[in-house]
Design a protein around this nucleic acid. Structure first.
Lengths: 220, 220
DNA sequence: TCCAAGTGGAGAAGGTCGCTCCGCTTCTGT
DNA sequence: ACAGAAGCGGAGCGACCTTCTCCACTTGGA
């Protein structure tokens, strides 16, 4: 970007910048965009001042981090579009983008909300949409997905399943795949038998633990 | 309860108590348990002091409010159990309890989390569970629901759909029923064609608006 | 060697929350 | 009609966030 025109950072400064980016990426992924810059600084082993010198505010740090993550989703969508089977293409895209969202809470927050603040991310999302539309349309035209399934429903489903994933994240990080499985079965226009569930359900203790954890998190 | 033993409140005090309960109920329903007692006081047109005199702390106010709401869900479950068709029973219970959760955000938070704090609510939930198990078991034995569907999946589904409902609440308060419809179709062991969607999808403007709103709410 | 570049973290400014306290008002029984 | 008990409002306290600034000090590298 513009870094080529400016004189390079001092060696230690550049190293710190990198550590901040890495740490911020990890913390955002785990806990969402709500993480404070102070906390990022602490985890990166630098002072807050250092963070603020490198990234004038939180928005710019976020922008710097997530541009390529969106590109990854775009690539996934494009890859799906090239798969031969229209249903496999749709299913692959949904599953893969859910995986990305589950692995990175901040990414999910950026994908499902709109802000004037993050212009570049906004633009990234706008590149993704038409490809998704294409994947969905192809499946619909091929008659492999229910006709009344709308693009907006996909958005809601992503949100819903993503939220379920977050709910059980500490206890059974893969159990959201069951919900996805049920949902995908619901998207088929007709079918003889349910798809096999990819993972076992929660046992009683896991349910308890999930609910307790969520209660704890809610009250901050 | 114990009110009979204590001398009754002064007329104005009792009226205030009632206003506080009503206002708190409405605010909790709309915005969840996070609402501060100061805000409840302001909306009820009383001072914070008055709230704290009547309800020693937030927990007790919540307990007082939600006992009978849980009883309502228990009644729904029992009513479902008495329906003749096992699938209708399950579908009715899920739909009805989703409706209650969508109409009252705080109720949802209480149903899906566990706290040592609200003992009476905890107990209410424990009464509901066996009835739900019965409804689900009956459906499974009758072969009208996929065999691998577990009670814990129902919990996740409730969470997921409830969250989707919240996401679109301001813009299209009924659109969650589409997600529920897809999901319910996914629960059937086999089927010829999808159930008809109960409401139209979001249009583009509604999608925009939903995402913007959610972004706004996230950053408080 | 030396000084510009870089650093850390205290703390300012501004926000939230739950909860207390006490001078004042309003009810109610006599 | 009036005393005194009951109830009231809301300023304000303490604890806790957050973002962001500032400046005495340290360090890299020409």
């Amino acid at each position: 970007m513009a870094t080529t025109t400016e004189r390079p950072l001092r060696r230690d400064a550049e190293r710190n910048r990198q550590r901040i980016l890495e740490t911020a990426g990890a913390l955002f992924a785990e806990r969402g965009l709500g993480v404070s810059l102070d906390e990022i600084a602490r985890h990166a082993g630098v002072g807050v001042g250092t963070v603020y010198r490198r990234f004038p505010d939180k928005e710019q740090l976020i922008d710097a981090l997530f541009e390529d993550r969106l590109a990854e989703i775009l690539a996934t969508a494009n890859a799906s579009l090239e798969m031969s089977d229209p249903w496999d293409a749709l299913a692959h895209f949904i599953e893969r983008s859910m995986e990305l969202q589950v692995a990175d809470r901040a990414l999910k927050e950026l994908l499902l909300s709109t802000t004037t603040a993050h212009a570049r991310i906004e633009q990234g999302r706008r590149q993704i949409q038409p490809v998704v539309v294409a994947v969905l349309d192809r499946a619909r035209r091929a008659g492999v997905v229910r006709e009344d399934f709308d693009l907006s429903d996909l958005l809601l489903l992503q949100h819903a399943i993503g939220e379920a994933a977050e709910y059980t994240h500490e206890v059974a990080p893969e159990v959201w795949r069951r919900i996805l499985c049920i949902t995908m079965d619901g998207l088929r226009p007709d079918r003889r038998r349910p798809s096999p569930m990819p993972v076992p359900p929660l046992d009683e203790e896991q349910v308890d633990c999930t609910m307790r954890e969520w209660g704890r998190r809610r009250r901050r």
